[in-house]
């Protein structure tokens, strides 16, 4: 589904990533973990087309997508969420999700401005689609609220609903549990499993080990910009290198 090969990223003199390679299988939930500064966020930014790596290749469903901008990756069915949720604060919750349907709709500027008949029926379809995703994430009652006024936990759900509206085949989540309380984290775990059950491949960076071990099928461990280990949660928990890396890190 997704393959990174030899990804290297150098910021000035700092090597944030050093020839990282791994493959992610379709339908898996894969966790990317590692101590602070390991390069997880940098890796995500490269895969999602926000940074351009110094070297290395990204393949999405076998296609070389190295250097593709994010909007092009969205059309190839890859979408991501952000650690510090990036909502459209001035828009309603429903409108946020409607933006998620951008690639699944086509009305242009003039069709919209002149209310062409097809743009009106498309608008109806966009609204219904968006409502479906609000329902899926359980925030239908917030539809008309300003997204900027949502509590953090609800904002997280909105960001996921909005990403799902893209109808992705793969979704990257950057620390989805950050800032959530334990109850919200449990609900999130269930939600991520339901997303996987829709045949959407999930990749997440996460610090909450309990969550990672609970939901992930596979785990990739990064340390100091290098891939340290890769395997099932069980294998990772038993890996001496991983234990050493985490004990050596006082985080």
């Amino acid at each position: 589904m997704l393959e990174v090969s030899g990804i290297t990223q150098i910021f000035g003199g700092v090597t944030a990533l050093d020839s990282v390679s791994f493959k992610i299988a379709k339908g898996d939930i894969t966790g990317v973990i590692g101590p602070n500064g390991a390069g997880k966020t940098t890796l995500f930014n490269i895969i999602s087309g926000i940074y351009h790596q110094t070297a290395g290749t990204v393949y999405l469903e076998g296609k070389d997508v190295t250097g593709f901008p994010p909007e092009r990756l969205a059309r190839l069915s890859m979408v991501r969420t952000f650690q510090n949720i990036e909502l459209f604060g001035g828009m309603t919750v429903l409108e946020n999700v409607m933006v998620g349907m951008h690639t699944k709709s086509t009305s242009g500027l003039l069709a919209c401005s002149f209310k062409a008949p097809w743009s009106i029926s498309e608008e109806r379809r966009i609204r219904q689609g968006a409502l479906k995703w609000l329902d899926f994430t359980g925030i239908t009652d917030l539809a008309d609220q300003k997204a900027g006024n949502l509590p953090f936990g609800k904002g997280r759900l909105l960001e996921i609903a909005r990403a799902l509206a893209v109808e992705p085949r793969i979704i990257l989540m950057d620390e989805p549990a950050a800032g959530l309380n334990s109850q919200e984290t449990l609900a999130l775990a269930a939600l991520i499993k339901r997303i996987r059950d829709m045949d959407i491949t999930v990749v997440l960076v996460e610090h909450d080990m309990e969550l990672v071990m609970d939901i992930c099928d596979r785990i990739v461990v990064l340390n100091l910009g290098k891939k340290l280990a890769e395997g099932t949660p069980q294998q990772i928990q038993e890996s001496p290198e991983v234990i050493a890396a985490y004990l050596g890190d006082d985080d």
């Binding site: 999602s48 926000i50 901008p69 994010p70 909007e71 969205a74 979408v79 991501r80 952000f82 990036e86 909502l87 459209f88 604060g89 001035g90 828009m91 409108e95 946020n96 409607m98 933006v99 998620g100 349907m101 951008h102 690639t103 709709s105 009305s107 242009g108 500027l109 919209c112 401005s113 743009s119 498309e122 608008e123 966009i126 909005r162 990403a163 509206a165 893209v166």
Partner: peptide, 19 residues
């Protein structure tokens, strides 16, 4: 649709692009 995309770019260009 286009107006929403415009407002989205205004609020968070990166999130709009990702979508």
């Amino acid at each position: 649709r286009v107006g929403r995309a415009l407002r989205a770019v205004h609020d968070s260009e990166i999130a709009a692009q990702v979508l």
